[in-house]
């Protein structure tokens, strides 16, 4: 995935079954953000792989004051990339099992 300066990782091991997973997000390179970023630390949250939209979580982070509106897209994309990777890994595991 593209280096957005925002890192998103699993906050727990993926058992491949749960649809709601814990993710942790933090800014690795604040120079890649457009707005001035107040270093708040790593933000942990749960994300439903089937129901939720990464951009909506990014919007909530903006509303909570973690990021500026101008960086919402980059945060949303970072979450989206990680979620896509998790889904891809799961599909690969399932197809291997067949």
């Amino acid at each position: 995935a593209e280096d957005t300066g925002v890192r998103v990782e699993l906050a727990e091991e993926d058992d491949g079954k749960k649809t709601s997973i814990a993710l942790r997000l933090w800014v690795e390179d604040q120079k890649k953000l457009k707005g001035k970023y107040k270093d708040s630390g790593a933000i942990e949250f749960t994300f439903d792989l089937n129901k939720e939209v990464p951009e909506a979580v990014a919007q909530e982070m903006v509303d909570s004051g973690f990021f500026l509106e101008t960086d919402m897209k980059i945060v949303g994309k970072s979450i989206r990339d990680r979620v896509a990777l998790i889904k891809w890994r799961r599909e690969r595991t399932i197809s291997r099992g067949k």
């Binding site: 890192r7 933090w26 690795e28 390179d29 604040q30 120079k31 708040s40 630390g41 790593a42 933000i43 942990e44 949250f45 749960t46 979580v57 909530e60 982070m61 509303d63 909570s64 973690f66």
Partner: peptide, 27 residues
């Protein structure tokens, strides 16, 4: 503890904690 909890108006909970230094890129 330096961990804080933020609950958004949509009911989502964010748990904020310091990033381990080993996980930060050199600036």
């Amino acid at each position: 503890s330096t961990t804080t909890h933020v609950v958004t108006s949509a009911g989502r909970r964010f748990i904020v904690s310091p990033v381990p230094e080993s996980r930060l890129k050199e600036q």
